[in-house]
Amino acid sequence: MTKNIKERWRQFAAWVNGADSDTPVVTPEEKRAARPHPLRFLHGMLSEKNEMRVYHIFSVVMCLVFTGTLLLTVLYLPTFGGAGNPTENEVMERYVEKGIEEVGATNLISNIILVYRGFDTFGESCVLFLAATCVMILLRKDEKNTTAYDLAERAEDAEIESEENTTVLRSVVRMLMPVILLFGVYVLLNGHLSPGGGFSGGAILGAGLILFENAFGEKVRRFMSEHVYHFIKVAALYFYGFTMIYVFFTGANGLHSIIGTGIPGMIFSAGVIMPINVAVGLEVACTMYAFYAFFSKGEL
């Protein structure tokens, strides 16, 4: 069946290329065999084992040459930690000295990643979204691609889960869970004042959700259904996208933004940074949980 389809496809490709459909179709293997190979004589000389050995030696030598070249390059780089290095230039001066005045966050890194270089971070969010989508496509298990073996495995997992020998895990999670969630929310909401921000806070929240799911499976699954997941994720991405469009538009045209910077150092300050941090954090937490769910069960 598959061979037939391949044969027809090859004929179709030959027809597209302008060849007469009656001409015999040449497979890629035959073509390759007909072409004289410059290294063909080596294949005769080397057995398969020797070929592997040559490959190993070649890769070690290549790696050593590569590392040596890079180490030589270090000799020409500016000294580590020296003041006045070329990286300490007017870009850094602008970001450090004008950051609080222009954007308003006391954590200067969040100024850079969310406003000055917001385009990078927006692309990164899209990469994360794409990765979650690809994982979903690759690992999703529905009626069509579930074999009897998968079903047996899933039944075994359910059996292990129902054995109720998770007392230690459950009591520890009961104690740790509020602390983890509180820390995650703190990191998320204080991203413009202290180290942290959307990505780290979201990863902490996601890790907490994964832990919670391990201890009390049903409760989390009832809450994080597929609808909730899609709603949170899409709403967060849309909010992020529209906010960034507004920031880009006003920033690029030199317009006055209606979102003020507030008093630096207060919780409600720094304009768009805190809402964006919350949106990014929710998206990252959802993505991390979705990674876990698709890797372990193949569904949300």
């Binding site: 890194i109 990191v187 180290p195 902490i204 996601g206 890790a207 994964i210």
Partner: peptide, 15 residues
């Protein structure tokens, strides 16, 4: 770089 430290600990060692 404390931002990186938090992210690496949550992401690299956790997720």
């Amino acid at each position: 770089a404390p931002d990186l430290a938090i992210t690496e600990a949550a992401v690299g060692a956790g997720v």
